[in-house]
Simulated scan of single mutants.
Amino acid sequence: MRLNRVVLSTTLVVLALVLQVSVLARLHLPGAVPDLLLLVVLGLALVYGHVGGALVGFGAGLLADIAPPADHAVGRYALVLAVIGYFAGLIKPEKGQVRSAAGPLLVVAGAAVGSTVLYAGVGALVSDGAARGVGLGSLILTSTLYDLLLAPFVIPLVMALARRTEREVTAASADTGATNASREAAHRWLAAGTASRGGSALLRGRRGSGMIGRQRSGLLGGRRSVSTVKVGRIKGVKRL
């Protein structure tokens, strides 16, 4: 994951866990505790996709497993949220835009039911009796109800923050690419100008050397003609 995703996901997960433990768990509502952490994972998965959703879900679940007052086996909720984040990311909307509220609400309802059933199933496999004494049907019903009531306030906000961060990174990358392209164009222009100046200077040098050569040959020819005249005159004098 990119650094901006890690920073945003960590901030939202920690904030959700603190609110869930310190506020929602103390309301003593009948049945399950409203799962604010699950809603944050769903909101991020709907923007980041299945891979990002699985990674965020695993990290969030692992943090919930080790944070007090956790009373279950470590890794149990991490597995649940990783699976939920993966499947939620598979139905990521195109370009991160949600056309209606029905889709995310259906995802929340399915995730609430799936996470409760999966959590109970993993607990049965590892012989973790933390949830014994509470009916599974009551947990499913209350968790789905609470999550659906919180979803309209949590998921749109989380998705908006995630999309804004993605757009800022994309814009920064585009600006960097444009700057690099302009630098390359300027470098090519300077190289072409240097080459043309060098070529014209070389051409002028060749022309100058040709003129100098012709001048030298002209001077030598003039000297030879003068010497020839002088020799002729001397010979003529001697013949006279």
Rank of each mutant, 00 (worst) to 15 (best):
A16H: 02
G210I: 04
A67N: 05
M211K: 11
A191K: 08
R224F: 00
G232N: 08
E166H: 11
S227A: 14
R197W: 07
L24Q: 07
G59E: 00
A195F: 11
I140R: 01
A201I: 04
M1D: 08
G213F: 00
A151W: 00
A195Y: 07
L8S: 04
L157E: 10
G199M: 10
L118V: 07
L106A: 15
A174Q: 13
G53S: 11
W189A: 15
A111H: 03
R204E: 13
S182R: 14
G123Y: 02
A181P: 09
T144L: 12
A111D: 09
V14I: 15
L141N: 00
A160P: 02
G232A: 10
A82V: 04
A67P: 07
K235Y: 03
G85M: 02
G129N: 08
A120S: 03
G236W: 04
D128S: 06
R164K: 12
L44H: 06
N4H: 13
A101F: 08
R167N: 06
S217I: 05
I155M: 09
V33E: 12
L125C: 09
N4S: 11
G177M: 11
T176A: 15
R163F: 04
L161N: 12
S225P: 03
L90D: 01
D128R: 01
A192D: 10
L150I: 02
A112Y: 04
V40W: 01
G218F: 03
K230A: 12
I66T: 10
I66D: 02
A178D: 13
P30T: 05
A192L: 11
Y119I: 00
W189V: 11
V7C: 06
V169C: 05
V231N: 13
P104E: 07
G85N: 07
V6R: 09
A32M: 01
R76V: 12
I212T: 14
P156V: 03
A54I: 00
L12A: 06
R132F: 12
A185Q: 12
T194S: 11
Q20E: 15
R204N: 11
R76M: 09
D65V: 04
A82C: 15
G59S: 13
R164H: 14
V13L: 09
S225V: 10
I66Y: 07
A45V: 03
L79P: 05
R233C: 02
G57C: 08
L37F: 00
L136D: 03
A45L: 03
K92H: 07
L24M: 11
L125G: 12
T116K: 01
L36Y: 03
Y77N: 15
V74A: 11
R188H: 07
Y77S: 11
Y86F: 15
R197F: 06
S100K: 06
L105K: 04
L90N: 01
A186V: 01
L63Y: 05
S173G: 04
L148N: 10
P34F: 00
L38W: 00
L38Y: 00
L202V: 10
M1P: 12
V122D: 05
I91S: 07
H72N: 06
E94Y: 03
V237Y: 10
R204Q: 10
M159Y: 04
A191W: 05
G53M: 06
M159R: 15
D35E: 13
A25Y: 02
T179E: 13
Y77Q: 15
A82R: 10
A124Q: 13
M159H: 09
L105T: 07
P156Q: 06
G133E: 09
A45T: 05
G31N: 04
L27S: 01
